[in-house]
Amino acid sequence: MIDLLTIFVLAVFVGFEVVSKVSTILHTPLMSGANAIHGVILVGAILITGSAESTLQLVLGLLAVFLATVNVVGGFVVTDRMLEMFKR
């Protein structure tokens, strides 16, 4: 458990370090990109559904898989559309 806490604390520092360097111009893509990244809950949703024992778990898990997938693909696609405009 302490291992996980270590990872969490280090990730906090990395997160603040990296995000504070993000260009002000790109704050909207930052938020939608971060949005796509929290879609990583899809990993959790797949793991839980893949080992579901009861119908309740299966239903909850599949709903989570669906929502998380919307989150992931939508997030990355929207971010890409925006960043494409900033290339010029």
């Binding site: 996980l4 990872i7 969490f8 990730a11 906090v12 990395v14 997160g15 603040f16 990296v18 995000v19 993000v22 930052l30 938020m31 971060a34 949005n35 990244i37 929290h38 990583v40 809950i41 990993v43 959790g44 793991l47």
Partner: peptide, 15 residues
């Protein structure tokens, strides 16, 4: 799951 912890924290920091 370490991946969820790291990714979630990154988003938390950004927000």
């Amino acid at each position: 799951n370490t991946l969820l912890i790291v990714a979630g924290t990154l988003v938390g920091a950004s927000g």
